[in-house]
Amino acid sequence: MTEYKGYTFEYHHKFKKEFQKTFTRHQCPTIKSDFKLLYDILIQHLLESNKFESHVCMRIAGLENYVNVPAFIIKKFRCEGINKGVNSGFRITFLFDKEESKFIFVEIFHKNKKKIPDKNRINELFVKEIEISDELYEHEEAYLNSYK
């Protein structure tokens, strides 16, 4: 389990595969620092306003009733290595459990390959025992905490 600034970050096992595949294909060498910045931005919004602003991420509607934590999609993700700013086209879905201060990243995709997030994947997290990974890449927690 990756802990950073009092929050826990976990990853759906398919997210880890998509992460490697997406950023290898799009040649984003800055992905570790880009994701660290994403974590910092999400945490900053929680600390300042106790919620995620709509310009940062949008809540995903239409999930089953048994999904007991909110799901969000990030549509403006900056990948510095491809020089398109926040218009990189990447989409990231995640859940946030406020009580446990835990983020669970569920899906990452490019808008040209797919238009909407996989709501079934989110729903399945609450029905089945789905493998959740502790770290996104090797030594992630050490990397994140090295810049305190």
Rank of each mutant, 00 (worst) to 15 (best):
F77D: 01
R59A: 12
H26C: 04
V67F: 00
F23K: 02
T30C: 05
D40G: 05
E3K: 13
M58E: 14
K14G: 01
E64N: 10
M58G: 08
E131V: 15
C57G: 05
A71L: 03
E48R: 07
H45Y: 15
C28P: 01
H13Y: 14
V69S: 00
P70W: 00
F52I: 09
F103Y: 10
Q27G: 04
I43G: 04
G62V: 07
K17A: 12
C57D: 03
H45D: 14
K102Q: 14
E64I: 00
Y137D: 06
F109E: 06
L47R: 12
I130K: 08
A71H: 01
K119S: 02
K75W: 01
R121Y: 08
C57L: 04
L47A: 12
Y7V: 02
M1P: 11
K102R: 15
M58T: 14
I60P: 00
H139L: 07
E107S: 12
K75F: 00
T8K: 08
F19I: 08
F35I: 08
E124Q: 12
T22Q: 15
K114Y: 01
K5E: 14
E107V: 11
T93E: 06
F126T: 01
K115Y: 08
M1D: 05
L37S: 13
K36T: 12
H12D: 14
E10W: 01
R59W: 01
V86C: 11
M1E: 12
T2D: 12
I92L: 12
K113S: 14
I41K: 08
V127A: 09
T8N: 10
E53F: 02
H45E: 09
C57N: 06
K148R: 06
F52R: 05
S146R: 10
L125M: 15
I122N: 03
I82A: 04
T30P: 00
T93L: 10
M1R: 12
K21M: 10
F77K: 09
Y4C: 02
N123W: 03
C57I: 00
N112T: 12
T8V: 13
K84T: 09
N112P: 02
F19Y: 15
